[in-house]
Nucleic acid binder design. Structure first.
Lengths: 205, 205
DNA sequence: AAATAGTTTAACCAATCAGTTAAAAAAAGC
DNA sequence: GCTTTTTTTAACTGATTGGTTAAACTATTT
């Protein structure tokens, strides 16, 4: 197990990065440690030396992965002043984060599908931060009287769940014919922002 | 492989039902055929007699699972007249379907996380039906001039992705303290309907 | 009732999988 | 440079996994 007080070695970082990809791509059970060893060129016993077990490796990967996105979103939102800008920034930065690193949305959906039972506490808390961030935006809007009341959880699932499904379904959308146009990330982001803003403003501004 | 022209036997149905649960709960790789045998009390070789392989069994389960929800939603929507009623019914019936059978949203999210590469063509087409259903509602609304333009895909991911995340995250939400109130299914459904309607109506009706 | 078809069974199998061991090698400390 | 600590290695291990076989049993047809 990687100790908290020691800077991870180059090998450990290499393992963790590759493992994060494999866990996202194949899920926990579908990720084979021999394959991870082959991907990294690191001997399997070394993997066990750096991380005590497959489970420990998984926990480390998920915690690190989710704290990254929560950091990005919260920081970006806090740099905005108005409620509408904050709301827009929440959507925009979350979309950018998962588009840049689809492992985030993929792993999140896998975890949710598993009932979050394998999700380390630290990773759960990172997701809570997103929800709390929305709560603050909504409370601020309510206090200023510029926003129709809505539950933070509602916004959370529509934004996080919606954008995650959008990003995760990209391969499927590309593989099948459709009578509806596909959307790029900026287009989808803009659409979601619009629906949410209009939905909460009630004036179609 | 179960032939299309023969009514499935009692045993085959029993296997399929249990397998659907296991595939949802543990994913494809995490589902063990010996465990399925134990769950059903059916000898493992029987499972292979009825379904040629684990993959074939999976395909059958998913196709059946997704066609069910698409049927429900499309039928319910087509029983409504106005665009707003149809839109509301889309949300309501989808929410009810996945709440009644969480295997739907769980398996959908797993499939999306895997890039849909294991999703049988027939199951993909069922998902397309949902998107197409939304497309028709939107086109009708646009023709009647009662709806702000929005892409079907946007609504699709926000509703399907949002409600799926809501249902799938129930275990997680129950396991952690939160400063934001949790919502029941009716409450969440109502909230999502409201945001969507306001978002597309632009008049906060 | 006998023949045929369908289904189930116990036992088995090769390959895979997470993890281990102790020696060798490399890095760090003195 | 020598000693100690850390890291890597090749080989190995027991358990598990998807799948198979042929005989036994059950159901259906003639």
């Amino acid at each position: 197990m990687l100790t908290e007080f020691k800077k991870p070695s180059k090998t450990a970082c290499l393992i963790q990065k590759a493992a994060t990809n494999l866990f996202a791509t194949h899920g926990y059970d579908g990720t084979i440690m021999d394959e991870l060893a082959a991907d990294t060129g690191v001997n399997k016993a070394s993997i066990y030396y750096h991380f005590g077990s497959k489970q420990d490796l998984y926990d480390t990967c998920m915690t690190h992965l989710f704290s990254g996105v929560a950091d990005q979103v919260v920081v970006a939102v806090n740099q905005q002043d108005s409620v509408w800008e904050q709301l827009e920034e929440f959507v925009t930065s979350f979309a950018a984060a998962i588009y840049t690193n689809p492992n985030i949305s993929i792993s999140l959906m896998r975890e949710m599908a598993s009932g979050g039972e394998n999700m380390p506490v630290a990773a759960r808390q990172q997701m809570q931060r997103l929800l709390f961030c929305l709560k603050e935006i909504i409370e601020k809007g309510a206090k200023e009287g510029v926003l129709i009341p809505v539950q933070p959880l509602t916004l959370h699932v529509m934004i996080v769940g919606g954008l995650s499904l959008y990003v995760n379904s990209a391969p499927l959308r590309q593989s099948i014919e459709s009578s509806t146009p596909d959307l790029s990330v900026p287009e989808m982001t803009k659409e979601v922002v619009q629906v949410i803003k209009n939905g909460l403003r009630g004036t179609g501004q």
